[in-house]
């Protein structure tokens, strides 16, 4: 049973061999001190480019109202650090309601995808039925189509359901993504068919095989699907911008655009707003990143 694997979560995670110099070997695995220094210098340089702007924004959001944020010699550390602007954002726009709205949409999308995609992925990969290939082909075909092409008629559909200008309308179309169905299909396929056959001999029905054999072996892919569904829903801008017209129902991204368009005279305020949208997603990603990088590492370790 221990051969059960999932591409994103190897059952046997091979440890990287210790980088010791083998006797008589060329020593390709060891890194010279000079190379190490060069690599770290480059890493820190890229780090400044990728993280710098976020730190600058964080710093701006913490600078006091009396502090000159336009100084020609930029100061990263605020002279009069304050959290006032975070309160001020909440006085200007209902930012916490927006955060709650974003969360509601994200939770609906995550739940829908985890449930719908794993059910469909399991059926498509482990159960035999007529029309299986056609259904699979349909899912594949939609991947070629950029979402923006159908966004207008998608809005028309949601409007006809009476869900225009509702949070449920924002979440609904993304609740089962074709890509996620295919990801789950791939994950379930890695499971050897003999396991199913053994379970059938033991009298397990399809539902039991799904719950007790399928699901436990694809936890890795499920977490990848969940992470990306969450990030995608939380970050989405165009779709909620089209669906939502009432400023009380905005999600965070649309609300931030509203804030910057209406009250753009105070950079500290907008900085605080962006941090409110940015920090939760970073925390989510930082805590779950090991699931995400695991699949990548698997490929990187071998060879």
């Amino acid at each position: 049973m221990s051969i059960v694997t999932d591409p994103a979560r190897p059952a046997v995670a091979p440890e990287a061999p210790p980088a010791t110099r083998r006797k008589g070997s060329f020593g390709f695995n060891t890194i010279s001190t000079r190379e190490k220094v060069v690599r770290y210098v480059l890493l820190v340089f890229v780090l400044l480019i990728t993280i710098g702007p976020f730190l600058w924004q964080l710093s701006t959001s913490l600078k006091g109202s009396g502090e000159d944020i336009y100084t020609r010699i930029p100061r990263l550390l605020p002279a009069q650090p304050t959290l006032d602007h975070y309160g001020a954002v909440a006085d200007t726009i209902p930012v916490w309601d927006y955060a709650k709205n974003s969360l509601v949409v994200a939770v609906l999308v995550v739940g829908g995808n985890v449930l719908g995609a794993s059910l469909a992925g399991f059926a498509l990969s482990r159960l035999q039925f007529r029309g299986r290939r056609i259904v699979l082909g349909l899912f594949l075909a939609t991947l070629v189509l950029p979402g923006e092409v159908t966004i207008i008629s998608q809005y028309v559909t949601v409007r006809e359901f009476g869900l225009a200008n509702t949070l449920f309308g924002v979440a609904l179309p993304g609740m089962i993504g074709a890509l996620n169905v295919l990801l789950m299909y791939n994950a379930f396929r890695a499971l050897p068919i003999e396991v199913d056959q053994a379970a059938i001999v033991d009298g397990a029905n399809a539902w039991q095989r799904f719950v007790y054999i399928g699901l436990p072996s694809v936890r890795g892919t499920i977490s990848v699907v969940a992470i990306f569904a969450f990030i995608g829903a939380w970050d989405d801008f165009l779709w909620p911008l089209i669906v939502l017209t009432d400023p009380n129902k905005y999600t965070l991204t649309v609300g931030l655009q509203y804030l910057s368009g209406t009250f753009s005279n105070n950079p500290r305020l907008i900085a605080a707003g962006t941090m409110i949208a940015f920090v939760p997603i970073v925390i989510v990603f930082a805590t779950l990143q090991r699931f995400f990088f695991k699949g990548v590492e698997e490929g990187a370790v071998k060879g």
Binding site: V46, L47, T50, I51, P53, F54, W56, Q57, T60, I231, W234, D235, D236, F237, L252, T253, L256, Q257, S260, P267, I270, A271, G273, T274, A277, F278, I281, V282, F285, A286, Q289, F293
Partner: peptide
């Protein structure tokens, strides 16, 4: 993880940061 952070952040958030 740090190099991946701009990908995880919303385009709206990073665009507002760059705007500033």
């Amino acid at each position: 993880t740090a190099f991946y952070t701009p990908v995880v952040a919303s385009a709206v958030v990073v665009a507002l940061i760059w705007q500033w």
